[in-house]
Design a protein around this nucleic acid. Structure first.
Length: 470
RNA sequence: CGUGCUGUGGCCGAGUGGUCGAGGCGCCGGUCUGCAAAACCGGAGACGCGGGUUCGAGUCCCGCCAGUACGUCCA
């Protein structure tokens, strides 16, 4: 069975076939860099990272475009409140996002375009839409998309325009807007907004509306039609609906598959600033190992709501992770072939079919754990577990979680410090071995406790003691 | 109100209509061990409620309850 993916537009799991065999284009709505990334933002990028890794593992060449929205109302407002240039504000948080992605081993996209770098492409699209009769200029600087002119409007989220008319918002729509449903392609500067946040267009100076950038950039880098458009489920409407409407109204095919990930909840509620329950990545990582956060954010199927319980989710991830890394390191001890490259290792059938079934990571992880158990059984029986270790690592690599991935290995210290520590710990363990030989259990236990206080975990085995940091 | 989603053991979470159901955490017992840890073996424990379709439903349909997302310049 080849890869099947759920498609939001058709509300069904469909076979995935790239438009060009062997090559996959993915557009991911990245961050609006108005604030620090929280773990919900990261879930989206991890879900796509896993999809991308699996596609590549399956022999596809993937072009992944993840944009940065570096101009919008909130960025302007927050920067103004803080007395900073909007571009400085945006870039500060763009860097925070980049650091968060890197910390969680999210591989960089093929390209990461910024909205402000694509004004020309946006203006071209806008002109095309006006020419085709699907958009109209309003007050100077304002350009609106004419929703009623596009009969397929609502096809992505299966809504009828007549049901979309908001009830009583109390807010009067702008006078130059012909229909309340129309959305902005271009916005005239509001009072007090800086000159640097406006660009000239045939319709007056202004700045991009929220949706236009993604249509323009997706076309520039992936073409008029491309394979997968990804993003958080809350972007379906209005953002993606509008993107699709304006792109298709311009005559483009746009996305073949819509890949939307569910959100992260804390205590059953979506993270949001107003609830004050946002878990900022930087703060979580201050006391948590990034690999555990990645594990926790990966383990649940991407379309299921992920219930994140502080103090529980990471501990559970930690238990699973220790089990996996413990097995891998034991397997390597018996045969360092288990530390070999995994790029071409054959993966278990069950894993492949789980991944092909709409990227079912939960089911795939079950295969990983079964493999680990089989490997541990082999080790317990005195055999080597090289094949099991390589298979487990190969599967984990698809999830970005190979324990020997240099990204994670680097976090555990340099080789030199590691070697120095090993000499010191060995000295204590040798002393403890002598005490044990003399059946001086009190002394042996005291030495073990000393090491434990320093964070060194000692485990006795048939062929001596092993130590690890915890 | 409209468009959706979710409800599976103490917790997190898979699940194709058909031997009542994966995996992880936790718990209980056992093996190993000076003890511990790890590992392995075994065990207890669940399909929101009510109807319907079917020979047979966690799995399809309807209703209800509960929670939740989005509904135009607001991830």
């Amino acid at each position: 069975m080849g890869l099947h993916l759920y498609d939001t537009a058709s509300r069904a799991v469909r076979p995935f076939h790239p438009k060009t065999p062997g090559e996959v284009g993915i557009y991911l709505c990245g961050a609006t860099v108005q604030g620090s990334p929280h773990i919900g933002h990261l879930r989206s990028s991890i879900a796509v990272d896993i999809l991308r890794r699996w596609l590549e593992r399956s022999g596809q060449r993937v072009t992944l475009i993840r944009n940065v929205t570096d101009i919008d109302d909130k960025i302007l407002a927050k920067a103004a409140d803080a007395g900073q240039p909007w571009w400085a504000w945006a870039h500060r948080y763009e860097r925070e996002f980049s650091e968060a992605y890197a910390a969680l081993n999210v591989r960089p996209p093929t390209y990461e375009p910024r909205a402000t770098g694509h004004i020309t492409e946006m203006v071209e699209l806008m002109e095309s839409l006006v020419d085709r009769g699907h958009a109209y200029p309003g007050d100077p600087g304002n350009v609106w998309f004419d929703v009623r002119s596009w009969s397929d409007y609502g096809e992505l989220t299966h809504q009828r325009p007549e049901n979309l008319v908001s009830e009583e918002d109390g807010v009067e729509p702008p006078a130059d807007k012909r229909d309340p449903l129309d959305f902005a392609l271009w916005k005239a500067p509001k009072g007090g907004e800086p000159e640097t946040a406006a660009w000239p267009t045939p319709y007056g100076r202004g700045r991009p509306g929220w949706h236009l950038e993604c249509s323009a950039m997706a076309r520039k880098y992936l073409g008029e039609s491309f394979d997968i458009h990804a993003g958080g489920i809350d972007l379906r409407f209005p953002h993606h609906e509008n993107e699709q409407a304006q792109s298709r109204a311009a005559g483009w095919g746009f996305a073949g598959h819509w890949f939307h990930n569910a959100w992260v909840t804390v205590s059953g509620e979506k993270m949001s600033k107003s609830l004050g329950n946002s878990l900022i990545v930087g703060e979580v990582l201050r006391e948590a190992d990034p690999v555990l956060l990645r594990y926790a954010l990966s383990a649940v199927h991407y379309r299921s709501t992920l219930e994140y319980t502080p103090g529980v989710s990471l501990i559970e991830a930690g238990a699973a992770w220790e089990r996996i890394t413990g097995f891998v390191s034991r397997a390597i001890q018996i045969d360092d072939g288990a530390a070999g490259p995994v790029a071409d290792v054959a993966l278990p059938e069950g894993f492949a079919s789980a991944m092909n079934d709409d990227v079912n990571v939960s089911a795939a992880l079950a295969v990983v754990h079964e493999t680990v158990r089989a490997g541990n059984s082999a080790l317990a029986a005195g055999a080597a577990a090289t094949q099991e270790a390589l298979a487990a690592r190969g599967m984990l690599d698809v999830l970005g979680l190979d324990p020997l991935d240099p990204h994670w290995a680097a976090a555990s210290g340099s080789d030199a410090s590691r070697a120095a520590l090993d000499v010191l710990v060995r000295a204590v363990l040798d002393e403890r071995a002598r005490a044990r030989a003399e059946k001086d259990w009190a002394r042996a236990d005291a030495l073990r406790d000393r090491l434990a206080e320093a964070g060194v975990l000692v485990e006795d085995g048939a062929d001596g003691a092993r130590w690890s940091l915890r």
